[in-house]
Amino acid sequence: MPHLRFQVAALSALLFTLPFVHAADDAGKGTGNEQPGKVKTAIAKTLGKIRLDGDMLAVLKAHENLRPKAIEKIDVPAARANPTIADAVNALLRQNGRSTDPAQLVPGVTSIDGTVQGGAGMIPARFYTPAGPGPFPVVVYFHGGGWVIADKQVYDASARGIAKQAQAVVVSVDYRQAPENKFPAAWDDALAAYKWTVANAASFKGDVSRVALAGESAGGNLALATAISARDANLQKPAHVLAIYPVTQSSLNTESYLENAAAQPLNRAMVEWFIDKLLDNKEQLKDWRLNLIDAKLAGLSSVTLISARVDPLRSDSAKMEEALKKADVLVERRDYEGVTHEFFGAAAVVEKARNAQAFAGERLRKAFGN
């Protein structure tokens, strides 16, 4: 099986470097043809059938049926209106005659919308609370979306699942996004939201002495960066940091970027598009907040890293694990075969997502002393 995986990875990387792939898939740019390129789509489908679990494939098929446009070919408003993996999960649930009500999918957790302090004013947030009198430990959670798209609603299932599995209040933060608010606005909001949560945890059944950080994709980067900033500002040390397929470095030529260059639902061209919208200039790529593997990591709280095998960001997690170990930070990484980027929030229909959420909850509960 490892030998087959190596062959498939090598084939994917080789195909994506061939000139005909780029020529065929770039042909639609600027012509009104905003659908994903036919060649890259064919490659992704073929390799997906070999590499992905059946339930993950079903999610990607449901997503394809919603006809998402290729993000790298459209503008920001259109990208924000694109169907998401969360939409695909709901489509599958309806197809199978199941409820899409979050309260039924994750019983025992209630949610209410509110605000928290951001870097330049109050920003939206959603508070998820387990059943019981509390006080509960608290997790400040940052959603994914390349710092440009998505919001707390798109990542509702992830935050809700963490609240259930960790038996913790989860504060899901809608930080400011680019290009309206470019780098480092999201990072400023993340740190401010953490400070606000520590100061106000008692007002929403939270235990101020047990506040952790978590995030997914771009939000995983924010969670790790906030832990570093909190240490440098002599703030309360987070109880734990949970980072789910985080961005931890700025090179697009890692093993997993090359291996999964044409993957769905995240690929190399999309990441380039996100970075273009995020930054004012390429010099900012050198900032430690985008290159966490080169930041000063000593003294951080324990960290959990979750990665997906079919994901351009898989190597980011592996490199982060290595950097944390070199800094003597307690870290555990779990890499999930057969799934893609965005799998974590698909627990309603994907077995590995349920496993990953259970693992995340176990790690958080241990850090909280539960």
Rank of each mutant, 00 (worst) to 15 (best):
K38T: 05
R231A: 05
L305A: 06
S209K: 15
K352N: 02
Q165C: 06
A327V: 11
K73T: 09
A262C: 14
V173Q: 01
A193C: 08
G97T: 10
E180S: 11
M1V: 15
N82Y: 03
A10Y: 09
S172N: 13
A323N: 04
T17G: 10
Y128T: 00
T248V: 10
I244A: 09
L15H: 04
K49N: 05
F344G: 03
V331S: 04
G97K: 12
A239L: 14
W273C: 01
Q95Y: 11
L235T: 02
Q35L: 14
A125H: 07
A308L: 10
D174Y: 01
H341C: 07
L93E: 07
R94C: 00
Q284S: 01
E321I: 00
N65P: 00
L235P: 07
S158L: 13
V170R: 06
K69W: 10
D113V: 13
L93S: 02
A202P: 05
N260Y: 05
R333E: 14
L330G: 01
V247W: 02
P19C: 02
L297F: 04
R231I: 04
K69F: 06
G219I: 12
A348W: 05
K296D: 15
Q284E: 08
A88C: 03
R160V: 04
Y141K: 02
P135W: 13
L305S: 03
K40E: 09
G132V: 13
S256W: 00
V8Y: 07
D101Y: 13
G220L: 08
V59K: 06
K237W: 09
W147E: 06
V39Q: 00
V39Y: 02
G146Y: 01
N96Q: 15
T17C: 13
S203G: 01
L4V: 11
D53M: 08
A44W: 09
P2Y: 12
N181D: 11
G369I: 10
P77K: 06
S301Q: 12
P107V: 11
V138E: 03
T248I: 03
D156Y: 07
A125P: 08
L300F: 07
Y245A: 08
T46P: 04
S229D: 12
K164W: 12
L266Q: 04
G145L: 03
L213I: 06
A192G: 09
A168H: 11
A91F: 04
P179F: 02
D189F: 13
F343M: 01
D53T: 15
E259S: 12
L279V: 11
T115M: 15
D316C: 13
D232L: 15
R126M: 07
P2Q: 09
A79I: 08
L364K: 02
V198T: 12
L47D: 04
A44Q: 12
A295K: 07
S301G: 07
G118D: 03
F127N: 02
V303N: 05
T100K: 04
L14D: 07
S307C: 08
A202N: 11
A79R: 11
L278N: 09
A120P: 07
A353V: 03
A24E: 09
D75A: 07
V140R: 02
L105W: 10
Q165T: 15
K366W: 11
G32T: 06
